[in-house]
Amino acid sequence: MTTTYAALLRGINVSGHKRVPMGDLRELLTRQGHGDVRTYLQSGNAVFTSASDDERALTTALERAIEQRFGFRVECVVRGAGYLRAVAEACPFPATSLEAKQLHVTYFSEPVDPGRLSSLDQAVYMPEEFRLGDRALYLYAPNGLGRSKLAGALARPALFQGVTATTRNWNTVVKLVELTHG
Rank of each mutant, 00 (worst) to 15 (best):
G35W: 13
G35H: 05
G35S: 11
D36N: 15
V37Y: 10
T39C: 03
L41C: 03
Q42W: 00
Q42H: 12
S43G: 13
S43H: 09
G44R: 08
G44Q: 10
N45K: 00
A46I: 03
A46M: 02
F48P: 01
F48I: 06
T49L: 03
S50Q: 09
S50R: 07
S50E: 13
S50H: 01
S50C: 12
S50F: 11
A51T: 15
A51W: 07
S52L: 10
D53K: 13
D54C: 12
D54S: 13
D54H: 07
D54F: 10
E55L: 13
E55P: 12
E55G: 13
A57F: 00
L58S: 10
L58Y: 08
T59G: 08
T60D: 15
T60L: 14
A61Q: 02
A61K: 02
L62V: 00
L62T: 11
L62H: 02
L62W: 04
L62D: 08
L62P: 04
R64N: 12
R64S: 14
A65L: 07
A65F: 08
A65R: 04
I66H: 07
I66N: 04
I66L: 15
I66Q: 07
E67A: 15
Q68D: 15
Q68I: 07
Q68M: 11
R69F: 01
F70V: 01
G71L: 05
G71A: 00
F72P: 09
F72R: 11
F72T: 10
R73V: 12
R73L: 13
E75I: 02
E75Y: 13
C76R: 01
V77E: 12
G80C: 11
A81L: 10
A81G: 00
A81F: 09
G82A: 11
Y83R: 08
Y83W: 15
Y83P: 05
L84G: 03
R85M: 04
R85K: 15
R85G: 07
A86Y: 04
A86S: 15
V87I: 14
A88H: 11
A88Q: 13
E89H: 05
E89T: 11
A90W: 00
A90G: 02
A90C: 00
P92M: 08
